[in-house]
Amino acid sequence: MNEQALLGLADDELVLGWRDSEWTGIAPLLEEDVAFSSIAQNEIGHARAVYELLAGPDGNADALAFDRNPDEYRCAPLVELHLLEWAHTIARRWLYEVADEIRITALMDDSDPAVAGLAAKIDREEAYHRMHAEMWHERLRDEPRFQKAVEELWPYALGVLPAELRGALVSRVGLSEVEAIERGTHTDELAPLWEEMTMVRRSAPAGAQW
C-alpha cells in the first residue's frame, strides 16, 4: 500500500479519535462516556502506530501527527465534521466502522508484512468498536432522526474508501451509490479543529518537550 493511503488511514483515526473524545464528560449516558473515551483512545493509538510506521525508527510520530498544515492532512471529510449530537455521532461511527472494516480487511492482505501485521492488530481492537456501533445501530435504526443522519453522511462515508472498495460498502449499508465526497478535499471544520489540536504544541518552539 502506498504511503499516501496509509497516511489517510492514520489521519482518519487521529481526527475521528479527536472528534470522539469531544464526548468525554457529556455523553447521554455515563456508560457511553466511558465507551467513547475508550474508542477514542484506541483510534488515537492506531493513528500513532501508523505514524510510527511511516516515520520509521528515527522519525517522530508526533511531528507527523501535529506539525503539518491543515491542507496537508489526508483524512476523509467524514471524520472532520463537527457532530456533537448523538444521532449524527452514532451514524458516523456506524458508517465509519463498516467502511473501516472493509479497508482493514483489504490491508491485512497487503504485500508489506509490516503493514499487514499492523492491520491485523488494529482489526482486533476494531472488533469491539464494531460491536458497539452495531448495538447502537440496532437501537436507533427506527428513529427518523438517525435515518436522516445516515442519509446525510452517506456521501461522506463513501469517500472514506477508494472507488474499488465502495461496492462492498454499498451492499453492507444498503443505500445506493451516490457521488462521494472525496478524500483530498477538506470541510471548513478541519481548520478550527487543527487550531485547537495544535495550539498548545505551537505555543513553544519546535522540538520542545511536553
Binding site: 468525554t24 510520530a61 501535529f66 489540536m197 498548545v200 504544541r201 511536553w210
Partner: peptide
C-alpha cells in the same frame, strides 16, 4: 484540554 493535548501520548 484533551482536545489541545500537545502530543499523542
Amino acid at each position: 484540554w484533551i482536545l489541545k493535548a500537545p502530543t499523542l501520548q
